[in-house]
């Protein structure tokens, strides 16, 4: 009996190993090696030089711009994404299915196209853009609000799609129980529903944040490429590559990669810690 078991195990072992090896090889080729190359390239002239490169005024401004626009977008996205998800799950209205399908669209639209759409909407020559500029002196295109808007557009699905399944699975008897105990609907939302939605909201927000850090296409169209003003990290990297400043490109890239990595790790942690909490 034992022998036959061993035999069967050794039989399944070979394809299993093969599968595992090819998976790892694939990750290595596609992700790990490029990462190592850029790490090695950035540190080519030592750690001090890397720091020097990213603290150059233009580079620093680009990184900081990326961080604050992404952060602002993330906060807006978290709140509005929560509300959108709630509306889509809990309320019935005509066109709900269509709307639900449209939410994923920003993921498949080329981000350059997103940029073009925003320019067509808010450009200084267009109706809305001119109105905002004249009435409120608010410039959107070729300015920082444009960056936030384009980031909002491209990362819209992350929070909604993270919250939706959790909200759908949420046991509504808890809310009914709270109602029988005298809680009004706002209290029920705050004390019963919201605590369950915070983990998916957080992890969704972090995903959208890390997505926004690397955004290039929409931003370059909407914001242009004005150093110290509307040049984000990713756009800076392009400029550095084009002007053959290889070290500068690698250094800023490394910072962007580092931030993205930390944020993704955090999102993973939240998902692990609370995602399965029931």
């Amino acid at each position: 009996m034992e022998i036959s078991l061993d035999h069967r195990q050794s039989k399944t072992r070979t394809p299993e190993r093969l599968l595992r090896a090819s998976g790892l090889l694939y990750i290595g080729l596609m992700v790990l090696i490029p990462l190592i190359v850029i790490l090695q390239d950035g540190l080519r002239q030592g750690f001090a030089e890397l720091i020097h490169q990213v603290t150059l005024p233009i580079a620093r401004s680009a990184i900081l711009l990326t961080l604050w626009t992404s952060s602002l977008m993330t906060i807006i996205n978290a709140v509005m994404g929560l509300m959108t998800a709630y509306a889509l799950v809990r309320f019935e209205f005509p066109g709900k299915r269509v709307l639900n399908a449209i939410i994923d669209l920003p993921l498949s639209i080329p981000t350059l196209v997103t940029g073009v759409m925003l320019v067509m909407l808010y450009g200084p020559q267009e109706v809305i853009g001119r109105f905002l500029l004249e009435k409120f002196n608010l410039q959107i295109i070729f300015a920082q609000p444009g960056i936030v808007l384009s980031l909002l557009f491209i990362s819209f699905p992350f929070v909604v799609r993270n919250i939706q399944p959790v909200l759908q699975d949420l046991d509504q008897t808890q809310e009914r129980a709270a109602a029988t105990l005298g809680a009004n609907s706002w209290t029920i939302f705050r004390k019963i529903v919201l605590p369950a939605l915070i983990p998916p909201m957080l992890s969704g927000s972090l995903l959208s944040f890390s997505r926004a850090i690397g955004e290039f296409g929409a931003v370059v169209i909407v914001a242009g490429n004005i150093p110290l003003k509307t040049q984000t990290g990713a756009v800076y990297v392009l400029g550095a590559v084009e002007s053959e400043n290889r070290l500068g490109a690698s250094a800023v890239s490394l910072i962007l990669i580092g931030i993205a990595f930390i944020v993704l790790a955090l999102a993973n942690l939240i998902h692990k810690r609370w995602g399965s909490h029931k």
Binding site: D171, Q174, R176, A177, A178, I192, P195, A196, H277, K278
Partner: peptide
């Protein structure tokens, strides 16, 4: 409730 419905 049958499923207790305690606030988790």
């Amino acid at each position: 409730f049958q499923n207790y419905a305690l606030f988790q």
